[in-house]
Computed example of a mutant assay.
Amino acid sequence: MSYSGPEFEPAPSRRSPLRRPLVVALAALAPGALLGWGVYAAVGGPAAPGGAASAAVGTPAAGSGSTGPAADGDGKPTASSGSAGSGSLKGKVVVIDPGHNPNNFRHTAEIGRKVDIGTNRKECDTTGTSTNSGYAEARFTLDVAHRLRALLQAQGATVKLTQDGDRAFGPCVDERARIGNTAHADAVISIHADGAAAGDRGFHVILPASVHAGAADTRPITARSHDLGVRVLGGFRRVTGSAPANYLGDGTGLVTRKDLGGLNLSTVPKVFIECGNMRDGKDAALLTSGAWRQKAALGISEGIVSFLRG
């Protein structure tokens, strides 16, 4: 930084009769000196601490505490986020299931048809809920899914989404389960937000019940799914600061259900998370915040990483 003004003017100096020849000599030597330093640095000479050499490759400073992708002002991962994984989850497959679909409301007949979920038949899918101001659950789930994918990919995991807003509707709940099964996923997380009464606040994680009926047999995955759910609950609570739901689960934040096809038909560890209640004003203020959704994704990712590392 340079300054101008009377108070920063340099004091006048006396001109030496040797100054002119000396300046010429130094000017002649400067290019060679710079060239020599360039070669020295290129072959492994020490760089100044915090210098441009380390900044150019985007390496975090030691002790920075950075464990995930960079985010923009709204808390959303930047385009370069997660481009290089740490490798800690290399070989692991995670399937993210963003609940519902932004286009479902245009296809009520298609999503209304019944499919087999093992214990009975149920609607293919639903439109989901929304905040009182009209922010749709399907938009929320897809946004959190994108953030979560970036975080997990940055850890080296292979990540697949059951839908990316790129299909007319669905997929149906039985197909969502098949996607995780076919991928031989090490973990599947289905992302949702609830539509309970105002005043009902908090999040909860849904675990598969032990079901053995028709096409459903969750017995081989219930224990592992419970472990996954507990870890996701812990990570989500720690990072977001949210409390477990005050309207179900007896304050534990864990709910076991046997009426969800996405869980009943899964053959790999899988849980749902209801991140908050869209119909409550205080919860809705969180769910509509990009910065908070980034925290939600980070909390979920920490739970999944903990589960996959064992």
Rank of each mutant, 00 (worst) to 15 (best):
A28I: 15
L35S: 13
L152H: 01
R19G: 10
T267M: 06
K92I: 01
G262F: 01
A150D: 08
F203S: 03
G32Q: 06
G229I: 01
A177P: 06
T131A: 10
I96E: 04
H226A: 14
D194T: 08
K76M: 11
L148S: 00
D97I: 03
I179W: 06
G58V: 09
G38D: 11
D164A: 15
D116K: 07
R279K: 12
D116Q: 10
T129R: 00
I304M: 02
P46C: 06
T252Q: 09
G51K: 10
G36D: 06
R219P: 02
T222I: 15
K90I: 03
I96N: 00
A136F: 12
F307W: 04
S64G: 12
N246K: 05
K295V: 07
G51M: 09
L207A: 03
S88H: 07
G112N: 14
P69K: 00
S16P: 10
V93Y: 03
S2D: 11
L287T: 02
V95F: 04
E302R: 15
A53W: 07
G253W: 01
H204R: 04
A62K: 12
Q294Y: 15
P98N: 11
F203I: 03
T267Y: 08
R20V: 14
A28Q: 07
D194R: 02
S80E: 13
N120E: 14
G156T: 08
G73W: 09
L142P: 00
V271R: 00
E123N: 14
G63V: 07
G51F: 08
A28L: 15
A48S: 11
I117Y: 10
A284R: 06
R14I: 14
Y135T: 07
A25Q: 12
L161T: 10
T129W: 02
N101C: 08
Y135W: 11
L161D: 06
V205K: 03
V305L: 04
R238V: 04
A183K: 07
G156F: 13
Q163K: 09
H100Q: 09
S190F: 05
L308G: 00
D217T: 05
G45S: 11
N246C: 03
K160R: 15
E274L: 09
P10Y: 07
K270E: 03
G234M: 04
S133K: 13
T222P: 01
V232N: 02
R106G: 08
G38C: 10
N120K: 15
I111R: 02
S64M: 12
A183P: 06
L286Q: 10
N277E: 05
V93F: 04
S289T: 08
T141G: 02
G50E: 08
M1S: 12
A11S: 14
L89F: 12
R238A: 10
L233W: 03
A62S: 14
N264M: 03
D174M: 04
V232G: 05
D74Q: 13
G235I: 00
R238G: 02
Y40W: 14
Q294S: 14
E274G: 04
P102V: 15
G253Q: 01
A42N: 09
R201L: 06
S2M: 11
G214V: 06
G36W: 13
H146M: 11
A136G: 09
G45N: 08
L228C: 07
G51A: 14
